[in-house]
Design a protein around this nucleic acid. Structure first.
Lengths: 105, 105
DNA sequence: GCAAGCAGTCAGAAATTTATGACTACACCA
DNA sequence: TGGTGTAGTCATAAATTTCTGACTGCTTGC
């Protein structure tokens, strides 16, 4: 038995999408690292234990889609890509800190 | 290619487990309803669009395991079960509120 | 007695998420 | 010219999550 769904996108809770965009594989770790510095794909791969290209790609794309991260092609000497927190992403920092505090019990 | 994992439980970010325990199917909706009143299984089923017994059971069990909800058998006239927020669950309320505020943009 | 509500459990299927390895394309260095 | 590094894509496979429908056991009302 299933409660009828008029719309498959039916939102029961406004925070749900945001919560989901932070809870996939590697997302928390990515966010955490993004707080202190711009991210590079290959260094994420080295820094996050158990990560792999595919899931990093997925995580980065989804966080971009949620407007938490912005992908920037740095037009400099050794041309490369950086991911930086957007203003919306920065608003999440205190939420994250609270979450970390709570998880220490 | 995968970064080596010494321990499969390797925690890259302390908030990750907590985040996960809030992001499964129906969890946000359950939490939200739990803020205002004790929950009954059958009314959750009616109130949450797109929910079904199995996923509610899973969500409730996991939130219990994370110590966000407590399952209480109410020894009264029509013997029944209630789920209530634990103190740890209550600490999450402000986090949730911030998350909801942020998701409105 | 029997139907209905409550609070589930269980098995199997379908859908979604992650993992793996191969491959691409460009730049840089020697 | 070849090797290394960056930043991926793609297809397939494996693992995890979610759905569905049937079934259980207890209580209350008609």
């Amino acid at each position: 038995m299933t409660t009828p769904q008029s719309n498959p996108e039916e939102e029961t809770c406004p925070a749900q999408a945001l919560l989901k965009s932070l809870s996939g594989k590697n997302k928390a770790a990515i966010f955490r690292l993004a707080v202190s510095a711009p991210l590079r794909f290959s260094s994420l791969l080295r820094q996050i234990p158990g990560s792999n290209k595919q899931s990093l790609t997925v995580a980065l794309r989804e966080m971009e889609a949620e407007a938490l991260l912005q992908r920037v092609v740095v037009q400099e000497k050794p041309l490369h890509v950086e991911y930086v927190l957007t203003p919306k992403g920065q608003l999440l920092i205190p939420v994250f800190e609270q979450l970390e505090k709570l998880s220490q019990e």
